[in-house]
Write a protein that binds this DNA or RNA. Structure first.
Length: 323
DNA sequence: TGTACTGTTACATGCCCACC
DNA sequence: GGTGGGCATGTAACAGTACA
């Protein structure tokens, strides 16, 4: 049963919004584009696993994608978590091309690509840490000695996995997506004893969902970009400029003439992702280049954003869907 | 307490678009 | 092309807050 779906990561949305609103010749653009490309590759890899995971027996596993939990003030992130009455599985997803080499003697994880070697953080150590923290998380909720298995899923079928001599256990842990299902069935054979009731399973599932704490970052600060550098206006998808003006229920591009009814939604989302976590009527007029406070009021109301405050100083907030 | 200011709401008017 | 419904707009009224 799929409990928590995978969503486009907030940081990816922020990078995308920033790229929309920075001038084409901005000196930080290349860094942001590279960061966005890396995150997108990771996200694409994570999405690819969903096809295989969602085919697992739904009456046994509760599936959670992209969880970020807090235990004793430590945050940890899990790409995919499979929870059952018998045991739980953490799956770390890697979308890395080339030949991957796990050196269990020097404890290094190396990627070879076109005669070039590059070191990465060892995903086996990564999932070991996740396992320890999840175990703590379970213990805090009175669930001790609940078995946790860890797997590393390789999304790219052309990626070759190798390991140093006498490290055959690596191949039980690191698998291409199409082999994950069989490995999970093997693990099911090893964990046949029920550890929790169905009710407890549902309760833990609810806690996992409610305690998921998405990472909210100030992306302009990370890249060292001033808020004044973030372009104002409504974006035209055709000429990729902030060149649209409001005219009777629609936005019209001054450069290419394209019209659109919903351009303001993306602009307001961009403001909430890049500038502040809430927007006022005044902010809206300034960012969308509107003159009429009543028009801004109607536009903000039409977005259905949650708001706080009375007639004055009303603040519209970042909706859950954007987190 | 009165005034200025900000933001929302109600209402009359005008525009757009589907239908004939 | 004419018509009518639906929706957006501009304006005015109203509500709430800040400040002298």
């Amino acid at each position: 049963m799929l409990i928590k779906n995978r969503q486009v990561p907030l940081r990816m949305k922020m990078d995308e919004a920033l790229l929309r609103r920075l001038p084409a010749n901005h000196y930080k653009r290349k860094i942001i584009e590279e960061d966005f490309a890396k995150r997108k590759a990771g996200y694409d890899g994570e999405q690819a696993i969903d096809y295989f995971i969602n085919r697992l027996p739904s009456h046994i596993f509760h599936i959670f994608h992209d969880l970020r939990l807090n235990v004793n003030s430590h945050y940890f992130q899990i790409d995919t978590l499979l929870l059952s009455q018998y045991f739980t599985i953490i799956i770390e997803i890697k979308n890395i091309v080339g030949t991957l080499y796990f050196d269990t003697i020097s404890k290094q994880f190396i990627r070879k690509l076109e005669d070039r070697e590059e070191g990465f953080r060892d995903p086996i150590i990564q999932v070991k840490e996740q396992k320890e923290l999840l175990n703590e998380w379970f213990e805090v909720r009175g669930l001790s000695s609940f078995p946790i298995e860890t797997l590393i899923g390789i999304s790219n079928p052309s990626t070759i996995v190798t390991a140093s001599k006498n490290s055959h256990h690596i191949y039980k842990k690191v698998l291409h997506f199409e082999h994950l299902k069989d490995r999970i069935f093997e693990l099911m054979d090893q964990h046949k004893r029920s550890r929790i009731t169905n009710r407890e399973l549902l309760e833990i599932g609810n806690s996992l969902q409610h305690e998921h704490a998405p990472l909210v970052q100030d992306v302009t600060k990370i890249y060292g970009i001033e808020s004044t550098e973030v372009g104002k206006g409504v974006y035209c998808n055709v000429c990729t400029q902030l060149s649209m003006v409001r005219g009777h229920g629609r936005w019209k591009c001054l450069k290419c003439g394209k019209t659109c009814r919903t351009g303001h939604i993306q602009a307001i989302q961009d403001y909430l992702l890049l500038v502040d976590r809430f927007i006022t009527n005044k902010d809206c007029r300034s960012f969308l280049k509107l003159k009429d406070p009543a028009a801004a009021s109607r536009i903000l109301k039409s977005t259905g954003l949650p708001w706080k405050g009375g007639y004055k100083d009303r603040r519209y907030f970042l909706p859950e869907m954007l987190k």
